[in-house]
């Protein structure tokens, strides 16, 4: 069976970050994993040593959706895929922009989200020094 060509005239983007990639051409296997500990604070205060990937959301096994072997697919490819313009502003966190054919794709993402807000309006606002040395 002949495979389809993918014809893209223009591929454009601004940002490509955190183990993301543009794949132009065919590939065989794709295996992408992304672990993110997302912390948002009302005040800018971040230590590099903070947080851990010990929690359940990162450690628990995730079952891949199963494939039904009873379903047999036969394709008849008569035309190529044509795209004039592609514009993707940002690609991040183990994401892939792929032009071309591939066979097996497995991708996994685990995110833990934490928000921290300041306590009360009448309290003294915290400074970096008081946060860093709480005692």
């Amino acid at each position: 069976m002949f495979k389809r060509y993918s014809i893209v005239n223009k591929l454009d983007g601004i940002t490509l970050s955190f183990s993301s990639l543009y794949q132009v051409g065919d590939s065989q296997n794709i295996n992408a994993v992304s672990f993110a500990y997302a912390v948002q604070r009302e005040k800018e205060f971040f230590l590099t040593s903070e947080g851990s990937f010990d929690s359940r959301v990162f450690q628990a096994p995730l079952k891949k959706p199963s494939i039904n072997p009873a379903v047999r697919v036969s394709r008849l490819n008569l035309c190529p895929i044509k795209v004039d313009q592609v514009y993707i502003r940002a690609t991040a966190f183990s994401s892939i922009v792929h032009v071309g054919n591939t066979s097996n794709v497995a991708m996994e993402s685990r995110v833990k989200h934490i928000r921290q807000l300041e306590s009360k309006i009448d309290e003294d606002p915290q400074t970096f020094e008081t946060i860093d040395q709480p005692n």
Binding site: P65, I88, A92, V105
Partner: peptide, 22 residues
């Protein structure tokens, strides 16, 4: 495009995506 996502212009045989958010 973020968090192990895929933009595919082409064909694929098998795609398996998993995601956990907490």
């Amino acid at each position: 495009v973020a968090s192990s996502s895929l933009v595919l212009i082409g064909d694929a045989d098998i795609i398996q995506l998993t995601s956990a958010f907490d």
